[in-house]
Write a protein that binds this DNA or RNA. Structure first.
Lengths: 245, 245
DNA sequence: CCCGAATCTGCGGGTTTCCGCACGTTGATT
DNA sequence: AATCAACGTGCGGAAACCCGCAGATTCGGG
């Protein structure tokens, strides 16, 4: 059995190596990569279908690397090992996991024993293991109060990028009013909307404020922004100069 | 000689402990704290005037901890040890370092030898040691193209928080137009301003866009935002309900 | 003392946001 | 077939934003 470790911090990489060797005596080869790109390459060359993957890395973060790995080999078991449990990551992962694939998500703050268990469960038993803290997020994101639709998340990203209503409309093939509709829902759900009863003193610029609280609540984060920015740049090249109606 | 290590990641903490013991044989006591709060307490109890400090931690990040430590004992030598070299951190630190104090800033990606040298230089020789990458930022921030005035940085934070022009004016005791003036300068310096020559197609909402590029360039970051948000909340309590002219 | 340079301020107007009101489409449920 | 929820669209208007123009203020030299 081969296990591939993708993690940029050398200390953590060494620690993971220890943990894998300790938890999986049936594993005879441990491969190590220091970033997403190298990880993809190693996974391709050696036919390694068990991966422990850090999230924030550069170049190529864990989510991107996982996506290409899963695209080539959907039955790969991937255990994500991250510092944070924020919505941007959770949403990003649940977006790319192939149906039926085994994967896991444990926090770096978890105990050695938790990590050990997760390694065995995911790599040997083909089970999905998700830390309780992360699990909480998934519930919320699917369900009730703070749960966005995909389309709402879309405009959230767009205004976070600093796009104009009109540009968003063009990009998403919507009318101006529809974009603004989604924005209203977004403001509502983020608890940013100000019913101007009595004193019409608008303290906040809703647009910017929405971005801020999303950042503070980690609905979006730096790497999500970077990714979105690159997508945007690509779109601007292609369709950004189209004819205006 | 006593050295205090403040670092939340246990692996990194252990590594730092090794490094300190190896580089400083004259050090007979190594104290360890896992977050800023504990760090402040330990520094106060034991009279430790040599500190190795991580930046991102919670509760209480490194900058805040350093500030209270330096307030109580301005001659403390502090070596900052961080993952990132972004402007928000550098600006935050250079804002709080007492005149004449010895401090250092090395990246976690630095080699063992670099760390060793920095430890000896700062703790024994009372020299300031700042990594080259970080140094680059300092130059830029003081000088030319991407260098903001303090007042410009101020409005940047304010729009990042999602405040209205009018609210910013009230908060900073300025007229509306002055705020908008500073904003214009900001847009200019961030390279966001769009001379609408020919095609007046405004692609970006300058306000939001400014925040985005600041985030992408790490002129502001998550923890800076959190701090600013708390300041804002306090201000809203106190002066936010004042009489309107 | 007068001269820039930097900053603060008011005015005016073009553009963008924000949002209530109203109506049509789609798709799933009953 | 009827209904209901979710989503897309147009119209119109109040507020906010962006910014050129121009007149004040401050402050450090020559």
């Amino acid at each position: 059995m081969k296990v591939l470790i993708v993690e940029d911090d050398p200390l953590h990489r060494a620690y993971l190596g220890e943990a894998v060797r300790g938890a999986l005596p049936e594993c005879n080869t441990v491969l190590e990569a220091a970033d997403g790109l190298a990880g993809e390459r190693l996974a391709r060359e050696h036919i390694s279908d068990r991966v422990v993957m850090d999230l924030q890395m550069s170049p190529r973060n864990g989510i991107e690397a996982a996506r290409t790995i899963w695209r080539e080999r959907p039955d790969t078991r991937i255990l994500f090992w991250s510092n944070y449990a924020d919505e941007a990551n959770v949403r990003g992962i649940s977006r790319i996991v192939p149906p039926g694939a085994a994967y896991g998500y444990v926090l770096k703050s978890a105990s050695d024993e938790r990590l050990r268990l997760a390694l065995r469960s995911v790599f040997i038993e083909d089970q999905c293991v998700i830390d309780r803290e992360v699990r909480g997020l998934q519930q919320k994101s699917a369900g009730a109060v703070s749960g966005f639709t995909d389309s709402e998340y879309e405009v959230l990203i767009d205004i976070a990028l600093g796009l104009t209503d009109r540009t968003i409309a063009r990009r998403r093939n919507l009318s101006l009013r529809s974009v603004q509709n989604r924005l209203q829902q977004l403001y509502e759900k983020l608890g940013v909307y100000q019913p101007n009863d009595g004193d019409p003193e608008a303290r906040f610029n809703l647009r910017s404020r929405a971005v801020t609280v999303s950042l503070l609540r980690k609905l979006v984060n730096h790497t999500a922004l970077e990714r979105a920015e690159m997508d945007l740049a690509r779109w601007l090249e292609r369709d950004g100069h189209g004819p205006k109606p």
